[in-house]
Design a protein around this nucleic acid. Structure first.
Lengths: 105, 105
DNA sequence: GGCTACGCATAGCCTGGCTACATGTAGCAA
DNA sequence: TTGCTACATGTAGCCAGGCTATGCGTAGCC
């Protein structure tokens, strides 16, 4: 996929992948790969800072798990995160309608 | 529409609006407004540099028209511009399939 | 004479995803 | 026991590209 096209849609992806489940950062990257059939291979330098940012925004909450000696920071959606996800999905529909409308006119 | 979401899709919009017709910069902005029902109101500082860039890339060709004393730089798609438009449309379909697939999973 | 719409153009800002790097554990193979 | 690979988190700084602000100039109307 072309560079920069993700700009502005990363938050939506992260919220969506956490919808209804808890995952740690590394697993989030793998989940996005899986759901996109390998098209989305986000670098850790993209995902980790974004997760911290979403947590600061109050949309995610995290806690440290220790599984077989390994520390994992596990994220889940907060209530306002769920609302944000709904808003992001609505924005996405608007966005695709606008751009798609021009491209296919 | 949220900031930055346009990132990476501007070229496609400009090529699409010039598909099959010649327009000058100002008219391109108006055409995009019209086709998007007002959702796309691109500033001149976005459109003019982009048009020059696409011309340098060989996708657009321009010529100066003088209409009732006013100079207008009129753009049209080149042959490779048409090919680029087809590629951009294909990219758009892939992009929406990938992101949409994750958001609606 | 002044206001508004039309019309083109550029310098520099700013955002946010990406590159590169740093740090450390677990498990397996040579 | 050394080395490699996968797992796991994190930050500093780069960089592309759309946007803001600004400047220049014309046409037409009041």
């Amino acid at each position: 996929m072309k560079a920069d096209t993700l700009r502005g849609h990363l938050d939506a992806l992260l919220l969506a992948v956490l919808d209804g489940r808890k995952l740690h950062g590394y697993a989030i990257i793998e989940a996005l790969q899986l759901r996109s059939d390998g098209a989305l291979d986000l670098p850790t330098g993209t995902v980790y800072p974004a997760l911290r940012r979403l947590e600061r925004a109050g949309w995610l909450a995290s806690e440290w798990d220790v599984v077989s000696g390994r520390k994992r920071r596990t994220y889940r959606l907060t209530h306002s995160g769920e609302q944000a996800l709904a808003a992001e999905r609505a924005d996405w529909r608007d966005f695709t309608a606008v751009i798609g409308g021009v491209l296919e006119a």
